[in-house]
């Protein structure tokens, strides 16, 4: 083997081995959950686990969809996550625009306050928020979850948009202003197309934050009909007696919307997180 070939092989292995290890670490749990969900109950818990399913059944999915309210939980989670995503986009985008592109008194203070709210532990707000939501008759409604999720997702979203807004040259805004565009037009027509990756990032972030939120959903939602997936799934798998197949089927279905969203706009999310990392 020549020196060049050896160097090339070593470089290739140096790149691919970590990638393969990383892929294994990331994919293995999903593989384990999915294959478990199609195994017979006896195979799921047998003494020596099977890497490849020796049996095949859809009974856990059948039970999940026919004997539980999981479809309702799925619908509720989708509604809450979609609304959280939309409202976060509608609030965070103009907020970030004004914070990073406009000059007004107290701007820095507002920015710091927003960051502080992001760092505030949610558990401390549990009881006050519950009481507040009761007074405005929002306990046990999906709107309550949307409001809470937006409250926690927006500060990070605003912060995340900083690099995107700062990357857009001021000259573009000035040119639009000279053409008679007002602030709203500049934001909608000039800025938004240029910060699309950022919008994708905060959309995914808001959706996932909402999709996986457990603590507030478990306390604020009372009736089964309004329950979201994380809380509903925790309930239906049982406490003293765990139905492992049902649990794995539920976990598989729960990951699907997130995977689909990532498949659609995941590239923007990665771009969003790395934007501004190298300047």
């Amino acid at each position: 083997m020549t020196g060049v070939n050896f160097y090339r092989v070593r470089r290739t292995l140096g790149v691919w081995i970590p990638v393969i290890v990383l892929m294994f670490v990331v994919i293995a749990p999903f593989y384990w959950i999915f294959t478990g969900s199609i195994k017979a109950p006896q195979e799921i818990i047998q003494r020596v686990p099977t890497l490849f399913p020796q049996s095949f059944t859809l009974q856990h999915y059948d039970k999940l969809f026919s004997s539980s309210d999981f479809p309702q939980y799925l619908l509720n989670s989708t509604i809450v996550a979609a609304l959280t995503m939309i409202v976060t986009l509608l609030l965070a985008t103009p907020a970030a625009y004004s914070l990073y592109r406009l000059r007004f008194p107290g701007r820095d203070l507002i920015f710091k306050v927003i960051l502080v709210t992001y760092a505030f532990p949610g558990i401390l707000l549990l009881i006050p928020l519950y009481t507040m939501l009761t007074h405005i008759h929002l306990v046990d409604t999906l709107w309550a979850l949307v409001i809470i999720n937006v409250t926690f997702a927006s500060p990070f979203a605003v912060w995340l948009m900083e690099a995107f807004f700062k990357a857009v040259p001021h000259e573009l805004e000035e040119a639009a202003a000279l053409d008679g565009a007002d602030r709203a037009t500049i934001l909608a027509r000039v800025m938004l197309p240029l910060i699309a990756p950022g919008l994708g990032s905060i959309a995914i972030y808001a959706f996932i934050t909402s999709w996986t939120e457990y603590m507030f959903a478990s306390v604020v939602i009372i009736s089964d009909v309004n329950r979201t997936v994380p809380v509903g799934l925790a309930g239906i798998i049982g406490q003293y007696q765990v139905d492992w197949g049902l649990l794995l089927a539920g976990a598989t279905i729960t990951t699907l919307p997130v995977l689909m969203l990532f498949a659609l706009v995941g590239r923007h999310f990665v771009e969003g997180l790395t934007a501004g990392a190298v300047k």
Binding site: L126, I127, Y130, T131, T134, H135, V139, M215, S218, V219, I222, S223, D224, V231, A234, G235, Q239
Partner: peptide, 21 residues
């Protein structure tokens, strides 16, 4: 009936009592 979960009832029930529902 409104089924709840043991995992969160220790926080949820006092909150519900305090809030009057």
């Amino acid at each position: 009936q409104e089924p709840q979960n043991w995992a969160e009832i220790y926080a949820k029930a006092p909150a519900a009592v305090a809030a009057g529902n």
